[in-house]
Design a binder for these strands. Structure first.
Lengths: 203, 203
DNA sequence: ATACCGTGTCACTGGGTGGTGACTTGAACC
DNA sequence: GGTTCAAGTCACCACCCAGTGACACGGTAT
């Protein structure tokens, strides 16, 4: 149609993104992508050599994870001082960023139900981001030796991620209603409580 | 074959269970179920009127969630005294039980990526179980008014669930290795730390 | 002009899926 | 023994999917 290879490739990649954000990996196939992109599917095979490599290209070009800088944002915008302050701040920023990234949410869903080469690679990228964040945190206030801050962070981040992924399909969890901001505020407050008492607690 | 309607229905339901535990809801279809059960698929339509109602039957007959009694187990086996003790105990029991129930894990995965009538019903059952557990907990030691124990529990339970669901496809999260028991022990310890300091912390 | 080659189009195969109608088998009942 | 009816079998439909080979177009270099 447009007779422009690069543009066509871009349209295909864009179509992948749209389909992914809207209906997840479950219904992602060559035909659907070609339809969405308004392109013949044979071009997908020509330019990307099949679905797996197309998805790999897609994964490479996208920025599904904020950099640590993006996660932190403007440092002067927070009055965080202690390690606990920073941890609470990062958790709240993380949950806000995740909420704004439907694609990232889909990738997390995908990691949860398929363990192939691509999801493992995506998981590695994600984990590197997580470790960077931990390193940033440690620079803000060194970890108390009697507490396993990485493990504690893992539990809390995992909790945030799970609650976030749930809300798309179901609006209540353990009696907490996530359809209104009030539910999220309770979670936010709980995270703050946990972090302050756990990380800075004087034993 | 066996010419016994009830037995055939049972075989079909059993096949659903096997397929579910082994390959999840993604590849669950009428043909696959019939194959697995060694039964003609037409019988599925005759006896269950299609996949949705079959799954509904399956959901009704199964006990995918432990009762609170099962969750608690033998009360005399623990020396828990305070509310925090009990909370930590329940969390550890919960995670152990979940680990032993691949079907339950699949249901949780399913809830995460499909929001239909059935998953919502399953979610309701699950939430009732969660609320029962909270009630049990409150009988063991009333909730401190300055802390949102349900919200804190929600975060921790969500964290456990997410970490559990991840381990099937990926073995590392935030630098913690879940392929060995050591990783889980760190999580367990982190949960204990959080609960003790958060719930019983003297502010 | 023409031969060439990259881009895009079309038509097709093979296989899996959900779903249905027509058939056979077997046992209980008269 | 023959009838009846539920339980089980078989063959088929329409549809969607991944993947491929053959063809049409349209610039470009010669």
């Amino acid at each position: 149609m447009a007779r422009d290879k690069e543009e066509t490739k871009a349209r295909i990649l864009a179509a992948v993104g749209r389909l992914l954000a809207e209906s997840g990996f479950k219904s992602l196939g060559v035909n659907a992508i070609a339809r969405e992109a308004g392109v013949d599917k044979v071009l997908i095979y020509r330019y990307f050599e099949g679905l797996p490599l197309l998805l790999q290209s897609f994964a490479k070009e996208g920025d599904y994870w904020p950099s640590v800088d993006e996660l932190v944002g403007d440092e002067s915008a927070t009055d965080a001082e202690t390690l606990a302050d920073w941890m609470a701040y990062l958790l709240s920023r993380f949950s806000a960023q995740l909420q704004e990234r439907p694609m990232t949410q889909e990738i997390l869903r995908w990691e949860l139900l398929e363990g192939n080469e691509l999801t493992r690679e995506l998981a590695n990228v994600r984990d590197r981001f997580a470790l960077d964040s931990l390193k940033f945190l440690e620079e803000k206030g060194s970890f108390p030796p009697d507490k396993d801050i990485p493990a504690i962070s893992a539990v809390l981040v995992a909790g945030v991620v799970y609650l976030m992924l749930r809300t798309k399909s179901s609006s209540t969890f353990m009696g907490i209603d996530f359809s209104s901001p009030a539910g999220w505020q309770r979670i936010q407050a709980a995270l703050d409580t946990i972090v302050q008492l756990t990380v800075d607690g004087k034993p």
